[in-house]
Design a protein around this nucleic acid. Structure first.
Lengths: 222, 222, 222, 222
DNA sequence: TATGAATGAGAATTCATTCAT
DNA sequence: AATGAATGAATTCTCATTCAT
């Protein structure tokens, strides 16, 4: 039972210590490139060789940290998402969550982008499954939409890509801290809902037209 | 005047040779990380030290290559974009162009993402102005639309981020070559047009104002 | 008695398991340098520390494997050699056997060359006695010869060195498998028999001279 | 002209310094395994990186040292050998020379055996040609003799293998210094001359043919 | 007897940058 | 303007051996 928790037991505990120390180091400015195996070993008071008893190489440790981190996020996100019933609300929730994921751990996210996603063997990596579970939450939500010519996967890429880009831009401008995550998430979710014909969101133009007609205003004044 | 042309004069010619060789090296698999200053010097038959007479450091050379590359793209895109009158068509054109930019030179684009945009001093860098001119083409196009709560800059980020994400995903899956760029660009442009209310004959804001005036509502409520 | 058999008793059995696993590992491409103590322990399902209860160090295990291996070979060779009565036949037999020893276990033989024979303490090592018994079989055979100025030990070194060199050359050329061991052994044994005046082998030149004289042919025609 | 000497010129001089320092280090007890690149660099007062400007890796340096050493030996041996006319004398000379080569630089010789000859790519390596030139001196000498069923290459292997074995045995016994090289060389050369029918005024084959013709025997019996 | 987690020293290699000529 | 030889810091990974349990 304790074994099952994958964090108990002498071996599991030590492995957990290493992962924790590594995540902290990798999360610092400069990311995993600046962190050395010696640093991590020293942080938890073991010999360098000891780290290699648990992770065969630095790259493996990097990947393990990401899997570990993404696992937590996915777990939590999936748990919370089920409580949100309507697609538009769920979309807003997932967009906001992605803002949090990136802005709270930019270095880890960049590490994921560069080291995991950009890897040839990624499709079969253990990280792949986790990431898939995470992004599938959005894909399923978007599948409720009815966008002409766009597959759910493409819609998902558009959403995550857009959020990612906004976050990285903000980080680069040094405005990450002051970003109105919730507000942006709401606006963006609404925009995408319109884009993908999600929920009962009706194109703004159509709604305006109805009002204009009702009021007897010309279609194209002056 | 000859200097202005940036390609005239003995000095300009040599500088151009270096830029060309560097762009070729940086564009290869592995990008600029795998390319050494010695490689570049050897390619054009000069000594290593000579490169430093034109570029103070490798980083500076990297930035110069990007500015050079982006300059060409921006020039061409701006020239071609003016011929396209309606915002929806222009949006589709710019989306397709971004697909081409990334998929034709993935290594250079990644270099731009990591090395240029991710730089503290980016805002004042010469590359910044060029990139701004490039992305402003889209920003202006999108400004014609009006989505509640989204600034033109944010809309632009959403569009470019989405395209970027789709391209990188395709590259990672090894499906970059078979991507239906034109088809995807059309669908995506349409989706964003819906998202941002683009393509309506008249900007939503103007129409709303007319309605508000007609109803005798205040200009700035609450 | 049980101890003497070196294979009886709980302790003897485990020791034997380790030796067997080590010999297999050491015999692989790369030899003992590539084999780790952990490999060997894992092969027989014991902990690394356990191996050290039977062999004080890796070096000791290496030596024990060689003694073990050479013991078998010597035993068998001595047993079979007694049946061969004439020195020339015995020489051929021992040459062929040496081809077999080296070509069937090149890695073990190289290990013997480098690790055992090249050791300062070799003369007193347990392996020394065995190897001596093995090579003495040849030395005694050659002692029957009457070579001017060559001690039996030197003659033995010449023979074994020659065979060794031919085998290693063949291995390096990748021709070890196609070597005509028996044929080569016969020719080589005959050459050495002539060299050392062994048995009734008379120098070819002398025999020819007798024939030439008998036929009345000139010594140096044309 | 100075360039031709392959040791002149600034670059050649530095390369020569490194080779010299490396040969000295590799020749010490423990051989090249114990010598570090840092040792060699320090010996001649340059930075570690400098060594890598002349030799791409430690292995390449090892091979270069061997080629350099063997080149000298071959040059000298070939030069001196031409003055010795009769095969038996030449055989004795080459045997003695091999004693000198091994006993004067046992560590370098072992390095050659392990690192060069035992290498898959050896046949095409630059060292191969040199070694071939060296051993061919003996092969040609032995070709004058005729031993039933033994190719000149095999005869050469027997000779060099025998000498090698005697030397290594002497080294291992700590008797290398007191070895009577000249005396042994004479006896051994004589033994091999007998073995291979060398030293007879006329090749055995020719004499046999004459006898066969005299007796009216067929050219190709059986 | 057996375990197996922990140790820790040790060495090759890269490459942007400099500066004397 | 051009050369190109020299620099040297910086980090990963291996594995025989030990010893507390």
């Amino acid at each position: 039972m304790a074994q099952e928790a994958a964090g108990e037991g002498r071996r599991g505990a030590r492995r957990g210590d290493i992962l924790k120390a590594a995540r902290a180091r990798f999360g610092r400015e400069g990311g995993h490139a600046k962190a050395t195996m010696a640093d991590i070993a020293r942080d938890i008071g073991v010999a360098e060789g000891t780290v290699y008893l648990y992770f065969a190489s630095k790259r493996e440790l990097v990947l393990a940290v990401i899997v570990d981190w993404f696992g937590e996020i996915t777990e939590r996100t999936a748990r919370e998402a089920v409580a949100i019933k309507t697609p538009p609300d769920r979309l807003r929730f997932l967009v906001l969550r992605h803002f949090d994921v990136i802005l709270d751990n930019p270095e880890l996210y960049l590490m994921f982008l560069r080291e995991v996603r950009a890897t040839a063997g990624y499709r079969r990596s253990p990280g792949r499954a986790l990431n898939r579970r995470y992004t599938d939450l959005l894909k399923e939500t978007l599948a409720a939409g009815e966008a002409a010519g766009l597959s759910p996967a493409t819609m998902r890429d558009l959403v995550y890509g857009g959020v990612e880009h906004i976050c990285l831009s903000a980080i680069h401008r040094g405005e990450a801290a002051t970003l109105d995550r919730a507000g942006l998430a709401a606006s963006i979710a609404q925009a995408y809902a319109r884009a993908f014909g999600l929920g009962d969101v009706q194109p703004l133009g159509d709604r305006l037209r109805r009002i204009e007609e009702h009021l007897g205003l010309d279609d194209t004044p002056g």
